[in-house]
Amino acid sequence: MSATTLPTRVAVLGAGSWGSALAALAAEHADTLIWARRSEAAAEINDTHRNTRYLPDIPLPDSLRATSDFNTAIDHVCAAQSDALIILGVPVAGMADICQKLAQSLAARRHPTVHVVWTCKGVQPDTGQLPHEVASAALSGLSGVELGVLSGPSFALEVAQGLPVALTIASHTASTGDIVLAALHSQRCRVYTSQDITGVEVGGALKNVMAIACGISDGLGLGSNARAALITRGLAEIQRLARALGGEAETVQGLTGLGDLVLTATGPLSRNRQVGLAIGQGRTLEDILAGGMTAEGVRCARAALALGERHGVELPITAAVCRVLFEGQSPQGAVAALLSRDSRPESPNSYR
């Protein structure tokens, strides 16, 4: 990789657990500034090199700096002498606002080529848009701005601890992939490239819903066989929707599909799985949310189901999760309904 590929400056917008972990990785390779909404969080990162709210007991690099002023973060990348990188570390719910704010800031400034990549996973509840559609609506008309999505099986805490991880950057421009590789790729973080933005985003969105389903199954004590069946048929469900939206089946078999699904459906750090476990053990969604636990799969489930209906794609596991979460069906009833579905060929090559 040539030295000219290396981004001279990186800005991470969002100081949650994943934004902070990625900022720590980027700070090893480039001048990196992280933007936090709360001034207290920015001060803590600058003064103690910690983000105790999201990554307790994890030291952040001394070279990583923080600000709570949005314009300062944008000025940081606009002052770069070569291509710069902006990582959006915000949830789907905040994607539209941050993209509009970013578009206004970049339009008002001279800047080098800026590569904007996002990490959120889900579907916009009100519009049914995937994250790339939200980003494109706000940013694709700006000169010198390239877009991409960063995804893959990753728990922020493990990345911040320095444990190995593999991610995928999907973009329609090779230069965006090169910039992300230069900023994040290392011996402990392998980054792969893809052009299939849709496939990557569908895998990232629906795996959270499938993790809730697996958690419910585990909470009911249905065993490893049931979990394996849900993961496998959940993967087929993800693949059907991805292909209907223009994504590639091969993408769903990779890191951002199968890999992310296995991690989120089985990993102890998965909030989506934890929500499902709690429901399977008899708690209500209202009680779980009131306790402060949040999971993107809860926000995504209905929007994903509506997206499938709009494109004529059957999503039985997603539909079952929606009935349990929002329509009062018991977990046991949802399982019985799934098991009572007619048998069908698993693949087109079946004899039936």
Rank of each mutant, 00 (worst) to 15 (best):
67 T>R: 05
246 G>A: 05
151 S>F: 09
167 L>A: 12
317 I>W: 00
303 A>H: 04
214 C>P: 02
285 L>C: 09
302 R>S: 12
126 D>S: 15
170 A>P: 00
191 V>C: 12
312 G>C: 14
62 D>A: 15
179 I>R: 00
200 V>L: 14
289 L>A: 15
199 G>L: 11
236 A>F: 08
302 R>T: 10
95 M>Y: 03
274 Q>D: 13
75 D>N: 12
263 L>N: 02
51 N>V: 00
45 I>H: 05
121 K>Y: 14
191 V>M: 09
229 A>R: 02
75 D>I: 02
260 D>H: 11
301 A>Q: 05
241 L>K: 03
312 G>Q: 07
192 Y>Q: 09
30 A>S: 15
138 A>M: 10
85 L>E: 01
343 S>V: 11
166 A>G: 13
31 D>H: 11
131 P>V: 12
195 Q>A: 15
66 A>L: 02
165 V>M: 10
233 R>Y: 12
52 T>V: 08
130 L>A: 12
270 S>R: 09
139 L>D: 03
97 D>Q: 14
117 V>E: 00
19 G>W: 02
125 P>A: 10
341 R>W: 08
231 I>D: 09
81 Q>K: 13
281 Q>E: 07
237 E>R: 05
321 V>S: 05
193 T>V: 12
235 L>G: 07
215 G>H: 04
246 G>V: 03
46 N>H: 10
238 I>C: 07
293 M>W: 08
61 P>R: 01
247 G>S: 13
229 A>W: 07
155 F>H: 15
76 H>K: 02
183 A>E: 00
105 S>L: 07
10 V>N: 05
82 S>V: 01
223 G>Q: 11
83 D>T: 08
44 E>M: 12
156 A>Y: 02
225 N>Y: 12
75 D>M: 10
217 S>F: 07
19 G>S: 08
79 A>C: 08
342 D>E: 15
202 V>C: 11
37 R>M: 08
14 G>F: 05
347 S>M: 13
315 L>R: 01
205 A>K: 02
114 V>Q: 00
142 L>N: 07
27 A>S: 14
208 N>D: 13
262 V>I: 14
340 S>C: 13
255 L>C: 04
152 G>S: 13
347 S>H: 12
111 H>V: 01
302 R>W: 02
127 T>W: 10
27 A>H: 03
168 T>C: 11
255 L>G: 05
115 H>Q: 10
142 L>H: 05
164 P>A: 15
72 T>C: 08
244 A>P: 00
182 A>N: 04
179 I>M: 11
77 V>Y: 03
263 L>Q: 02
261 L>R: 04
289 L>G: 08
307 L>H: 09
232 T>H: 10
69 D>C: 14
92 V>R: 04
335 V>M: 13
115 H>P: 02
281 Q>A: 11
1 M>K: 04
54 Y>A: 03
319 A>V: 03
18 W>Q: 05
104 Q>C: 14
142 L>E: 06
266 T>C: 12
310 R>S: 15
305 L>S: 02
237 E>C: 08
229 A>E: 08
103 A>T: 00
62 D>K: 11
26 A>H: 06
305 L>E: 06
346 E>S: 06
31 D>V: 01
212 I>A: 06
1 M>L: 13
